[in-house]
C-alpha cells in the first residue's frame, strides 16, 4: 500500500482512536507524576486537560511527542508505538504539532523563517512553496503582515499565533497545546483562543492543557480532569462543569468558578 493511500484511508476514519495512552507511568525521582494513565484521543476530537498545578497535565501532554519519556506503559499514535529515539522519533514528531506556554519561536529567525524551517528541512519542501504555505498560514492566524519581523518584535499573543502557524505548517495529525495562554496578558488570551476555536471547528484533533474554562466549555468534546498524577474524571464539558462526580473535581471547580 502506498503512503498516499494510507493517508487517504486514515483521514476517512473520523472518530477512530488516534492517540492511545495505555497504563502510562512516570516518576520524577520520588514523585509519581503520571499514575497508570489511560487515555484515548479520537480522530477529530478536542480533549481539554484541566487540573490544579502540579497535577501532571503538562507532563502528560509532553509524553505524547516524547519530549518526556515514560517509565512504563505504552503510547501509540495512529496505531504505531512511539519510537524511543533517532530518526524514527523525529519522523513521528513531525506528525505531532506542539504549542508551548513560552512560545519558543526561534529567536534568530524571522517570523516567516520560523514557519518555513520545518517544511523545508523536515519535509524537503521547496523554499518558494514553503514561503507560500507559510504566508497562507500566517494570514490565517492574523499575523501575515509581520512576516519579516523577528519574534521579539511581536506581542505575546502574536508570537503564540505564529507558533500555532509553525506547528500547522507540518500538517500534523494532532496538535498538542501545553498551557498556550498561561504566559499571556488577559487581552491577548482571546486572540489566541479564537484561533484555537477555529482549528477545533475545522476538525483538527487537539489535546489542550489549559486553565481557560471558557475554552473548555465552548470547544472541548471531552474534559479530562487530573489531580496528583492521575486522571480523576473524564466527561463532556456540559456534564463535567454542571455535575462533577468526584470530590476532587468539585473542590477544584468550587475554587475557580467562585470569582
Amino acid at each position: 500500500m502506498t503512503a498516499e493511500a494510507t493517508a487517504a484511508e486514515t483521514a476517512a476514519r473520523p472518530g477512530e482512536p488516534l492517540v492511545v495512552l495505555d497504563h502510562v507511568d512516570k516518576h520524577f525521582g520520588s514523585l509519581h507524576v503520571l499514575q497508570d494513565i489511560e487515555l484515548t484521543v479520537n480522530r477529530g476530537e478536542v480533549v481539554v486537560v484541566i487540573g490544579p498545578s502540579g497535577s501532571g497535565k503538562s507532563t502528560l501532554c509532553r509524553t505524547i511527542n516524547r519530549l518526556e519519556t515514560i517509565d512504563d506503559g505504552s503510547i501509540t499514535l495512529d496505531g504505531e508505538p512511539l519510537p524511543a529515539e533517532g530518526k524514527a522519533l523525529a519522523r513521528l514528531r513531525a506528525e505531532v504539532g506542539m504549542v508551548f506556554q513560552s512560545f519558543n519561536l526561534f529567536a534568530h529567525k524571522t517570523i516567516l523563517e520560523n514557519v518555513t524551517l520545518g517544511p523545508t528541512k523536515v519535509r524537503g519542501m521547496k523554499k518558494a512553496e514553503a514561503d507560500k504555505l507559510a504566508k497562507e498560514l500566517l494570514d490565517r492566524v492574523g499575523v501575515g503582515h509581520q512576516a519579516d519581523k523577528y519574534p521579539a518584535q511581536l506581542s505575546g499573543g502574536q508570537q503564540q499565533r505564529v507558533a500555532i502557524a509553525r506547528a500547522l505548517a507540518m500538517q500534523p495529525k494532532v496538535m498538542l497545546f501545553d498551557e498556550p495562554t498561561s504566559a499571556l496578558d488577559p487581552e491577548m488570551i482571546k486572540e489566541v483562543l479564537d484561533v484555537m476555536v477555529d482549528l477545533a471547528k475545522q476538525g483538527m484533533t487537539m489535546v489542550v492543557v489549559t486553565h481557560e474554562m471558557g475554552f473548555a466549555r465552548t470547544a472541548a468534546d471531552r474534559v479530562v480532569f487530573m489531580a496528583d498524577g492521575a486522571i480523576v474524571e473524564e466527561n463532556t464539558p456540559e456534564e463535567f462543569f454542571t455535575n462533577p462526580q468526584s470530590a476532587r473535581a468539585q473542590d477544584f471547580l468550587g475554587k475557580i468558578l467562585k470569582h
Partner: peptide, 22 residues
C-alpha cells in the same frame, strides 16, 4: 534557552538539524 531545542525537536528536526539550524 531549553525551549528552543524543544521546539526544534517537536518540529521533527533531527539532532544534527537542530544543532545547525537552531
Amino acid at each position: 534557552p531549553a525551549g528552543q531545542a524543544e521546539a526544534a525537536r517537536a518540529l521533527g528536526l533531527t539532532f544534527t538539524q537542530s544543532m545547525r539550524q537552531v
